[in-house]
Amino acid sequence: MRVFGDKRAVDGVDLEVAAGEIYGFLGPNGAGKSTTVLMLCTLLKPSAGRAVVAGHDVVESPGDVRVRIGVALQEAALDERQSGREILDLQARLYGLSATDRAAAVERAVELASIGEAMEDRVKTYSGGMKRRLDLAASLIHGPEVLFLDEPTTGLDPVSRAQVWDEVRRLNRELGVTVFLTTQYLEEADALADRVGIIDSGRIVEQGSPAELKRAVGADVIVVDLPDDETAPAAEAASRVESVAAVTRGRHGITIATADGAAAVGSVAVALSAAGLNPEALTVRTPSLDDVFLMATGYRMATAASDAAAAAGGPGIRHSSVDTTAAGGARR
């Protein structure tokens, strides 16, 4: 737990990450992801509770934790007046690598960052993607057992994002590095994580593998597009259909969890029609992590695509308020 004044930024996070695992910590801005990472990286003491990283308590033995972890914080934290190589060399020196080890580690990191001859240039000339790759390489210079990545692709273009994903997968697969990854992008957690923890308002609200979490929503999801003023009667009508497991109201429609979408969609359409409602569209699809998040928190999360649209001035609501109604059985 971590308290700032009256606010509980992290409140009841209980999780265990196995060695060699990629753990995705998913949640919107302000959910408590970064505060959790800061505590696990020894930069912030928990107000209460205990955390053990790589076998060492973060409060009692922060020095032992620090030599075993690598950290890439939210913004690529680099000294723009130094060259990429100088930053890597300094990082290696801070971890006490011998001259021989340091030379080898810097060369490995240079290769990892894959920014070519620009490695000799000042960091201020780098693009966002180059900075992020250098940041990642610097955090790995000492061969950490556990790598913390705090929103590693926020603000990156799709190509740079894909490169970071590939690198994280490779590190995990080839070097066995345990990765603790925070993200607000659903597809990032889906693509990378062996297990996902969903955090909202400082609490973990769901945890499991992406497949398990999606299965828990139901085998299928029916998305019904409706005018805002019709979502309440639509949710009530749909919840009375026998095969419907849960109905979630959003601003622009309802989302229905069901064991068999193809079988249920007809009954749902009939129920809506009987209630005098005219859906603009009914779509049957398999659940996404967004649906998991929606069911667990009552919010929809941003996707990388919507984030890019929002950044470009286009539409893209980050958190649309919804109501969830359990219907025809338990949600999980």
Binding site: D64, V67, L90, R93, G96, S98, A104, H142, G176
Partner: peptide, 25 residues
Amino acid sequence: PRHGRSEAPGGVTVRQVGIVGDIAT
């Protein structure tokens, strides 16, 4: 106290440096 470990992935030895070494860096 110094904190150290050996044989990180990649075979390097990682350790806390002395105060003079840190100042120099």
